[in-house]
């Protein structure tokens, strides 16, 4: 039984310079307790996918053109504001990339932490504070009882991200969306935060969608990974097959361009060119202009669709599908 099922999500931004197809037909499922990694470069649509689910797309210019996202019988994209409020912030929570800007600088940590509890649960302020303290302890903030009344600027980057995580987990959500939670942090602090997310996931048993551009982070954390490019999913597989048997040329190229995967002193493998301009419709595969294996068939009118490689592995390269690669 899947916890979240997204079908054919399309989110477009209608701007003066044209329509940006930020997310263009994305479908995926997430089981309870599973960790799904979404990997892609900036502008590939990974964050917009999740913002759409949370109802955080600024409108205008953004508009969800089509799609369904079923979460426990409720379509998150077409539900009443009341239904959305009862789910968002309680059963689905989100951690953002930049802990420096995602906390309110005018509010004490304690007030920010108990806010979700006060809104969603019938609870007294004293009880909420008690739970907030326990949560701060759980995410590894020393001396939580005195620090809970601090303001955000009195915390370091790593500690603020811990506070964000505590805030997201305090309602014991069933789904946590983490949007590049460690990109702004140092490697040593990143290691702390990743361990923390793993530990809390085990305790609460929630599903996690982890958005990142770092393939290394995904490999240790996620059960399943999907790779996005130009607003579409190009490959999805369990972590092991994605890393050891990547099929799509983009996934392979992405892996080859990581410095640690290549012998020292050799020239790094590079993907030529730039990510596509999403405001201009591209015929065929959006990766074709940068792909070393592309031929005429790739730029014809046919949009590549995801096809099964095996039970857990799907990819969308036409040439791989026809057995040419």
């Amino acid at each position: 039984m899947s916890l979240l099922s997204v079908q054919d999500l399309r989110t477009y931004f209608h701007t003066r310079n044209g329509i940006y197809r930020a997310v263009d037909g994305v479908s995926f499922e997430l089981n309870a307790g599973e960790t799904l990694g979404i990997v892609g470069e900036s502008g590939s649509g990974k964050s917009v996918t999740c913002y759409s689910l949370m109802g955080l797309i600024p409108s205008p210019p953004g508009r969800i053109e089509s799609g369904k996202a079923m979460f426990d019988g409720v379509d998150l994209l077409n539900c009443t504001p009341k239904q959305a409020r009862s789910i968002r912030g309680k059963r689905i929570n989100m951690i953002f990339q930049d802990p420096m800007t995602s906390l309110n600088p005018y509010m004490r940590i304690s007030d920010q932490l108990i806010e979700p509890l006060m809104i969603h649960e019938d609870i007294t302020k004293a009880d909420a504070l008690k739970q907030a303290l326990e949560m701060l302890d759980a995410v590894g903030i020393n001396d939580a009882s005195s620090r809970i009344h601090y303001y955000p600027h009195e915390f370091s980057g790593g500690m603020r991200q811990r506070v964000m995580i505590a805030m997201a987990l305090i309602t014991k959500p069933e789904l946590l969306i983490a949007d590049e939670p460690t990109t702004a942090l140092d490697v040593t602090v990143q290691a702390q935060i990743l361990e923390l997310i793993k530990k809390m996931q085990k305790e609460i048993g929630m599903g996690v969608i982890f958005i990142t551009h770092d393939l290394g982070v995904v490999s240790g954390l996620c059960d399943r990974v999907q790779v996005m490019y130009g607003g579409r999913i190009v490959e999805t597989a369990d972590t092991r097959s994605l890393f050891y048997e990547p099929k799509h040329p983009y996934t392979r190229a992405l892996q080859k361009s990581i410095p640690s995967m290549q012998p020292k002193g050799t020239e790094l493998y590079t993907i030529e060119g730039l990510p596509p301009d999403l405001s201009k419709p591209l015929p065929g595969c959006s990766f074709a202009p940068r792909c070393e294996f592309a031929n005429e068939g790739c730029t014809s009118d046919r949009k590549p669709e995801l096809q099964d490689v095996n039970e857990t592995h799907r990819q969308s390269c036409l040439r791989v599908q026809s057995g040419e690669l």
Partner: peptide
């Protein structure tokens, strides 16, 4: 500690 904190793109090693 710094070296051990770098995540590698290798799931088996990582686990």
């Amino acid at each position: 500690a710094l070296v051990s904190a770098i995540p590698t793109a290798n799931p088996d090693e990582e686990r």
